[in-house]
């Protein structure tokens, strides 16, 4: 893993330290969890606004990624896996986007997470943008799937910050269900 960046004097601290992970998925449902775990790479860590923009300036935007690629933004210490201690009782909101929207939506979502706009305490674990051939998918992971007040608040904030058409379908899936059917979406 990359070294953890120490905040620098004069920088604007974020509420949490975050890691950006990258993975490429083999197409198909039955992805071996071990292989998937091994495909995850931390590509950046940051804890201030300035470090975040510095990282953003060299990272590829979601629309520039090819194949079945995933970019993950997670709090430091939480691995973007269903089985991670912070995720195992959790779930995620899934938003399917037509091609062409992912980069803008992903940046809007990241800004809302880093700026603590969701107002759900410690509940947000991270978010993923998944590049697929026909569509792109954004998901926001939270800790407690059965906390309906929190999940509804996350959905409403997500709708607002992504600025999506009103008829966009959003679906919540628990990580337990994902583990059971070996499928993320």
């Amino acid at each position: 893993r990359t070294r953890s960046l120490e905040p620098i004097d004069g920088h604007h601290r974020l509420q949490y330290t975050y890691c950006i992970w990258y993975s490429r998925r083999t197409p198909g449902k039955l992805t071996n969890p071990l292989t998937y775990d091994q495909s995850l790479r931390i590509i950046a860590t940051f804890s201030t606004v300035e470090q975040f923009w510095s990282v953003q300036s060299y990272l590829l935007r979601p629309s520039e990624l090819s194949g079945h690629s995933d970019l993950h933004l997670f709090k430091d210490g939480i691995k973007p896996l269903w089985e991670d201690d912070a995720n195992k009782e959790g779930g995620k909101w899934i938003v399917r986007l037509r091609k062409g929207l992912a980069s803008r939506c992903w940046e809007n979502l990241i800004l809302a997470i880093l700026g603590e706009q969701f107002m759900v305490g410690e509940e947000i674990c991270g978010a993923v943008v998944s590049i697929r051939s026909q569509e792109d998918i954004i998901s926001v992971w939270n800790k407690t799937a059965n906390d309906s007040i929190t999940t509804i608040r996350i959905r409403d904030t997500l709708k607002r910050v992504l600025n999506l058409p009103l008829n966009t379908i959003m679906e919540y899936k628990t990580h337990n269900d994902s583990l059971r059917d070996h499928s993320s979406f």
Binding site: Q15, E50, W53, S54, Q56, L111, G115, E116, Q117, V161
Partner: peptide, 21 residues
């Protein structure tokens, strides 16, 4: 405790700060 909150326009403004580039 107190949470560190930033709105979108502030974060976007910070994109162009010399320290971030």
């Amino acid at each position: 405790g107190t949470r560190i909150i930033y709105d979108r326009s502030f974060l976007l403004k910070m994109r162009n700060s010399p320290i971030a580039s």
